[in-house]
């Protein structure tokens, strides 16, 4: 079961919900893994302070042309759609940062002159916080392509257990890479013109992927009722409303987990999970009767 938390607009509270849900659920579900797929700006670790046990460098395969073998025929330049190779009469230039690792140049070279080089995309770091498994990607600063690194983080989704995915903002390829294969998407938004505009785009992206979704409205009292109206019109379940609370903002600012400093947040997270499970239908069967457990 994979639940992704996404938003369209940045700064609406994805990380807050992902990290707090993960910590609240780790005693409810037998196996919980949180994947931070916002590899450009991964923030969950700031709240979880996990113990990291493994770091894997992730590399993209790029061409490295052996000039002793190269006949300067230009076939590699021709097949490359990304302008990563320029062949001049006596000079073969590669621009590894533009390469998408499609392998076309390796396949097309008649002289076998294209050798396998590599470019560092970033790292995937694995760790845990108590029973919670945690994996994050960290894009190398200066690297443009997030999706291949995001796909590597997604490979760590824990088989039969519950996986939560903290997705990047926006609606383009990094978001699609993070959301693909999810069983449910929780869209976190705020009731403002920017929040609604970006929510509409995010809903479009989730619909293309055909994944069931629900909406959480953060700072629900700062703005108006445009999100509620939109959710009603589009028949997307509204799963949670979180009014602005200065204590929440301050705890977030300091890097504190709300479920630890504001006890009512634990119950809020369990209620949200129940709501997700009711809509999604495939999770949350293992904790009936937990109402009395707080």
């Amino acid at each position: 079961m994979i639940i992704s938390i996404a938003s369209g607009k940045g700064g609406t509270g994805k990380t807050t919900l992902a990290a707090n849900l993960a910590v609240a659920l780790r005693n409810i579900e037998p196996e919980v893994t949180l994947l931070d797929c916002d590899v450009e700006e991964p923030n969950d670790h700031l709240f979880l302070s996990p113990t990291f046990t493994r770091t894997n460098e992730i590399w993209a395969e790029v061409p490295d042309i052996d000039t002793k073998l190269c006949a300067y025929c230009g076939k590699c330049q021709e097949i490359c759609q990304f302008n990563a190779i320029a062949i001049l009469p006596e000079l073969a230039l590669t621009f590894p940062e533009l390469c998408h690792s499609c392998g076309g140049c390796f396949m097309v070279c008649p002289e076998n002159a294209v050798r396998s080089g590599k470019r560092l995309l970033g790292v995937v770091e694995e760790g845990s916080r108590g029973p919670l498994q945690f994996v994050q990607g960290r894009l190398r600063v200066g690297e443009a392509m997030a999706p291949p690194l995001i796909r590597k983080v997604r490979e760590a989704a824990g088989g039969d257990g519950l996986t939560l995915v903290d997705a990047p903002p926006g609606t383009s390829c990094p978001v699609m890479a993070a959301l693909r294969g999810s069983d449910f998407v929780l869209l976190v938004t705020e009731p403002t013109p920017f929040g609604l505009n970006d929510l509409e785009l995010a809903v479009g992206a989730v619909r293309i992927l055909g994944i069931p979704m629900g909406i959480a409205i953060n700072r629900s009292d700062l703005g108006d009722d445009r999100i509620r109206k939109f959710a009603g019109k589009e028949k997307i379940p509204l799963l949670m409303e979180i009014p602005f609370d200065r204590r929440v903002a301050e705890a977030y600012a300091k890097g504190e987990l709300l479920v630890e400093v504001l006890p009512e947040w634990r119950e809020k997270m369990l209620t949200l999970y129940d709501a997700i499970c009711r809509v999604q239908g495939g999770c949350g069967n293992g904790h009936n009767g937990r109402e009395g457990s707080q």
């Binding site: 690297e143 903002p169 926006g170």
Partner: peptide, 10 residues
């Protein structure tokens, strides 16, 4: 500008 540090920000 966009958020993040990836392709559109660069």
């Amino acid at each position: 500008g966009p958020p993040g540090i990836g392709c559109p920000v660069i």
